[in-house]
Design a protein around this nucleic acid. Structure first.
Lengths: 153, 153
DNA sequence: CTGATTGCAAACCGTTTGCATATCA
DNA sequence: TGATATGCAAACGGTTTGCAATCAG
């Protein structure tokens, strides 16, 4: 029922990042690598703030702006993608080509579950086609109460 | 393929608003009525700013805050609902019980098409159930290029 | 060396809030 | 008359930006 998670290691991820950085003639800094590493290690659905707090322990001088800029860079390089589950805060997750999934979010504890559903995707494509749209992306989020929170209540 | 739009008239809508306002012991002001009327007349998917600009012509003294507060009131009364198609700006549309629909948004011209799809809804319920979630709401948005914009390109 | 990057603080921008004044019931 | 609503301006909070100092290549 779940989704196969990435088999990539931190090092592989950082290598990919370094490759893109080199390719673009950008520079590799300790701050960037720290942000990228923590981003990957935290796993999915990271908040800018949570990442900032983490990196801070290693780089007491790092600024919010650097974290923002590095995450933005990751997105530009197709190594990360953003989600807007709640309107106040963006969250970032790993981007992996050919691995589209959607989310179920618990409205009580904010837990996020990922799922794939080929049939829904197919029907969405169909709907777009029926309206003559050339589909570029979509967003589907289910909000509800997770099993744990149901027990608590 | 489209959706049957509301048959409600402006006056009926305003009447409903007045009823709720009375019911809650709130007060009916010219500003509120103006906002509510323009909201309804604009049809779906209204931005706070666009509404503010409209009402301004009638009430040169009205403030943004009043428009915001009135729209918030409409949402509380289940006469309106919000959507967050683009992360910077909320937009409001009419809320009608038992009339759930989703949206296809043109990424070029921002045109919004509504659609209903019982089978997708059913599958979404299924997915939630499979993960033990008690579904409360969902959001599904398709983004693409509309027929008009395809022709232009 | 020198152009990219950083950290800081200030700007941004949509939204919300505090408060004195005006208004509805 | 008395509580509610308004308009204004200031606050908020996440995000972005300008800039001088720093650093990677």
């Amino acid at each position: 029922m779940g989704i196969e998670k990435s088999m990539m290691t931190v090092d592989e991820f950082i290598d990919r990042f370094c490759a893109v950085v080199r390719e673009r003639g950008l520079r590799l800094t300790n701050q960037r690598i720290a942000v990228v590493r923590h981003f990957f290690q935290q796993g999915h659905h990271v908040t800018v703030d949570s990442l900032y707090q983490l990196v801070l322990k290693e780089h007491p001088q790092i600024g919010y702006a650097t974290v923002y800029r590095t995450l933005k860079l990751l997105v530009e390089c197709s190594l990360a993608q953003t989600h807007q589950f709640d309107k106040n805060r963006v969250c970032f997750e790993l981007y992996e080509e050919h691995e589209h999934h959607d989310h179920i979010i618990c409205v009580e504890c904010s837990k996020i579950i990922e799922f794939e559903h080929a049939e829904i995707e197919r029907l969405q494509d169909q709907v777009a086609e029926d309206h003559g749209f050339l589909l570029t992306t979509h967003r589907m989020e289910l909000y509800g109460i997770c099993p744990d929170c149901q027990k608590k209540a």
